[in-house]
Design a protein around this nucleic acid. Structure first.
Lengths: 192, 192
DNA sequence: ATGCTTACTTAAACCAGCTTAAGTTTTTTT
DNA sequence: AAAAAAACTTAAGCTGGTTTAAGTAAGCAT
């Protein structure tokens, strides 16, 4: 049972201990092995994940068959193909575990029940979506502001843990350039 | 008084006519002239806008002093610097009216009151944020998937009204390229 | 251990998209 | 209506980042 999710909720909204305990029963704790696939492009997306420990990525395959990662979720972040999850349409993205990852998961119907039984949770998810949206906008801002080299420098100084944790190929696709160019940048930055 | 906002809310959540009428009283209708500035980078962001008629843009100045537009809001869309609005920090973005624009506006305290008096509205804003977040992610996907030329083709076939309404310079910065290059693409696409 | 597959590196040739700079057209101001 | 400013166009030269291709290292199965 994840104490972390409970804490995370309590941090965002005012809510009683007993409610939190109740709320957690709507979620199912589960472990996904490294490289496990939680959601496949073009399939229906039934589940919302909260990362307790580990790391997930959201990605798609471009027309050349290259996997493009557009988002990570580490401890304390939520992940799903939002559009597919809420609309019932087939997923545009895939989700994969980069490391062995412990999640708390909930399906759409159970989430609806949860929101009916605990309407305060609307406010919690509101904050989650706001944060995610703001992060995504900031990302667009960064893409436009910085050269790829500057973007790499910024990212590696701001999130050094990521550079350790994430395979280069995946990191390169997240940052928006080829693995070859990332390799070049790494070499360059080591000289200093 | 905006009937449009009321309709928009009723479309997203189940709510009574009388509640809608009440809810609308929390908002203030207002008209901004073309080129008017609704929010300035580095100032505090106190207001959330719903566009009734017209068009707003969200932008920032990069280090070379060039304005980069990262989002539009036309009829039926909300706009603010979300992070600044909720956190009280100074804004990272500016907001400007591209056309003479009628909005319904609400400040943070009034919004809090509204959400206290009508908790159902949490669900409404939840949907708004979800939609905005999904749109932003899709944008990142497009940026990575398409060449700038393909991106322009896609955009101009999907949103031909925009091509008409938005000055080229602003459109170019939204699409992520120079006005000169946009000019070249336009010429190219006219030949066909 | 041994082979097999996948991840990373290096370097040269190439090109999409930018910069610069000058010209034209449109809009705004007086 | 004229002048000034801002928006758009055109074209040449250039560069950040990709492509291609070949080599090295690391992970994984047998």
């Amino acid at each position: 049972m994840s104490a972390f999710l409970g804490k995370h909720i309590a941090q965002q909204i005012s809510i009683s201990e007993t409610d939190i305990t109740q709320i957690l029963t709507y979620f199912k704790p589960r472990v996904y092995e490294k490289k496990a696939c939680l959601l496949q492009e073009n399939q229906s997306c039934k589940t919302l994940y909260f990362v307790d420990r580990g790391c997930l990525r959201l990605f798609f395959c471009d027309d050349k068959g290259i996997e493009q990662t557009i988002q990570f979720a580490i401890e304390g972040w939520w992940m799903t193909d939002l559009t597919a999850f809420h609309s019932g349409k087939t997923a545009e993205f895939s989700i994969q575990a980069i490391e062995t990852t412990e999640v708390m998961e909930i399906d759409r119907d159970t989430l609806e029940e949860l929101l009916k039984d605990f309407p305060q949770m609307e406010r919690y998810f509101n904050k989650i979506y706001q944060r995610a949206y703001a992060a995504s906008l900031l990302r667009v801002k960064h893409i436009f502001t910085f050269s790829k080299e500057a973007f790499y420098q910024l990212f590696s100084s701001k999130y050094p843990q990521f550079i350790q944790r994430i395979p280069q190929k995946i990191l390169a696709s997240f940052l928006g350039f080829t693995p070859e160019y990332l390799s070049e940048l790494r070499k360059k930055s080591m000289k200093h």
